[in-house]
Structure formats: C-alpha cells, structure tokens
Amino acid sequence: MKTGTFSDLETLMEKDPKPVIIHLYTDWCSVCKMEKYNLNKDKEAVDLINEKFYLVNFEAEKTKEKIQFQGRDFKYLQNGNSGIHELALALSRNKDQPVYPLWIVLDKDQKLVYYHEGMLKPETMKQKLMEISAL
C-alpha cells in the first residue's frame, strides 16, 4: 500500500486532489497490527486505496517532528518517558486518550467524511471507500 506523510500531502493535493485517509495507530496496539495485516492481504482494498486516495499512516505516540496540517502547526507533547502528538489529539474525538486504531477520511476539500475508532474490517472499509470515492 502506498503511504505518504503530512508534509507530502500538501504538494500531492495541489497536483492531484484526492480524498485522504489518515490512519492513527501505535506500536503497542495489537488490534492495529491485526487490522494492518488483514487489510494488506485484501488486494481489492489495497488497489482501491492506491488508486483513489492518499494514505497517511500516523504513529501517534512516536512521531516527534512538527507537522503542519490544514494551516496549523502541531508538535509532540512529551509526558515523562512517553508522549503523544498534538495532531493525534486534534484529530480524535476523545481528547483525553485517542482510541486506536483510528481511521479518518477527508474528502478532496479536506472535509471530514468518515470517522471510525477501533477495528475496521477490510469489507467495511472497501464499502465506505467506494461510497466516498463516488462522491
């Protein structure tokens, strides 16, 4: 699956506007690992994402660089030995502790069209992404 970064996104959107999938996860999340494995096995879902969307995989607790997104700067918030990225909190509806995995889909105008906390099965994802790509 082709993935990009938030810094790539602005340039890509200027050249070829497409809906954006933001996948928030953490290294310690076992559900995230199972979900990624199942999704990568589904060729139809992978092809759909690669053709019609930009995908940003975002490790919410290990990404430490400053990120500019939708005209704002977000930074890593250190908390003892760990921390969380400010952007993960901004994207999550649960402001105290985001639920992982978290899937956010924005249309080509950067408006929220889909939000899903927790495990997302490839079949459900394909159905939602086909609806979104038809918009």
Rank of each mutant, 00 (worst) to 15 (best):
P19Q: 00
E86A: 08
G118Y: 06
E35M: 12
M13R: 09
I67K: 01
G4A: 11
Y100K: 03
K95Q: 04
D16K: 14
Y114R: 05
E61T: 14
Y54C: 02
L106P: 03
S92E: 02
L89H: 03
L77I: 15
L12P: 04
S7C: 12
M34N: 13
H116P: 01
K111L: 13
L48H: 01
K33S: 12
A134F: 09
A60H: 05
N38W: 10
I67H: 02
Q68F: 15
L77N: 12
F53T: 01
T11F: 15
Y114W: 11
S133I: 01
Y37V: 11
N50H: 04
N94A: 11
A88L: 04
C32Q: 05
T11R: 14
D109H: 11
I132L: 09
L87P: 02
K33W: 09
C29W: 02
E123R: 07
T3P: 10
K41T: 08
L87Y: 03
D73M: 12
N81R: 14
E61W: 13
W103P: 06
H85Q: 06
K128L: 06
L9E: 00
I22S: 01
L87F: 04
W103M: 10
L12H: 08
Q127T: 14
S82A: 11
Y25L: 09
E51H: 07
L87H: 02
Y115E: 04
K43P: 08
K41H: 10
K62N: 06
K108T: 00
L102I: 00
K95W: 02
P19G: 00
Q78R: 10
F69P: 01
C32S: 09
E65G: 07
D47I: 13
E10A: 14
I104T: 05
K18W: 07
L106V: 09
L12N: 08
R72W: 10
D8F: 08
A134E: 07
A88D: 03
D96L: 14
W28S: 09
S133C: 06
E10V: 13
R72L: 14
K111T: 12
K41V: 08
P98I: 08
E86L: 09
L89V: 00
N57M: 13
M13P: 06
G80K: 05
D96S: 14
K108I: 02
E44Y: 01
M34C: 10
Q97P: 13
F74C: 04
I67R: 00
K108Y: 04
T26M: 08
S133M: 05
T124N: 13
E61A: 10
D109A: 15
G83C: 00
K95M: 01
M13T: 08
C32W: 07
A88I: 04
L9G: 01
K15N: 14
Q110L: 15
K43C: 11
R93P: 03
T63N: 05
K62H: 08
M130L: 15
G118F: 05
G118W: 06
L135N: 10
L120V: 10
P101H: 01
